[in-house]
Amino acid sequence: MKVLVPVKRVIDYNVKVRVKADGSGVDLANVKMSMNPFDEIAIEEAIRLKEAGKAEEVIAVSIGVKQAQETLRTALAMGADRAILVVASDDVHQDIEPLAVAKILAAVVKEEQPGLVLCGKQAIDNDMNATGQMLSALLGWSQATFASEVGVEGDHAVVTREVDGGLQTIKVKMPTIISVDLRLNEPRYASLPNIMKAKKKPLDEKTAADYGVDVTPRLSVVKTTEPAARAAGIKVGSVDELVSKLKEAGLV
């Protein structure tokens, strides 16, 4: 079985995000970018399936700007076997929307015929949480979202999902799409020897046009603003004063 793992190049989670002066988005110039942390978890799970003898090949796919090949190199260094880069934009500030990403992935799936797509539940830059579900609809495949435990058993997968109020275990028919949550695993560090080997692994480069997908945005960003700064607090002298202040503010 092949496992396909889409990975997105996003602003590094350590970076203090700044909104661009014109409000059109966040500033990505000269900012450290890295692999979406949920996608790292998906790559790790795919590699573990391979190590457990349940998968033969792990293919990482990224869609976006040319620089996303660095993100794919990280996936290869962690242990993916090969990578596909679909160049869909030359502007780092253009976000490819989930529907376009899902359409491209659907085309890649038709070409590669994986038995499983493991993806992050969402990207930490726009928090859409949509691509996996859209891909499921486009392919007509089953889906299991927010996975915190994954077991592949013959022609089906048993997935524990993180849902409101607890955990839910479901059984889905393969091929399937599993979107992974934070607690599924702890991704490994890419070791130095594997980083060196990654350079020699195949990395195919395609364009969105190769798959006949139009990536023109369908949404328009009206405005991007910084979150409001936290207002200064006050000290109250007594419980009575606290209660009256809370009443004043309409909170009790």
């Binding site: 660095e70 190199r73 560090y189 890419a190 130095l192 350079k199």
Partner: peptide
């Protein structure tokens, strides 16, 4: 050499993480 920019960045990223 066998190294390129992405490999050096990868090495320093792993160093940064550990």
């Amino acid at each position: 050499s066998d190294l390129d920019r992405a490999a050096v960045m990868g090495i320093l990223d792993t160093a940064d993480q550990i």
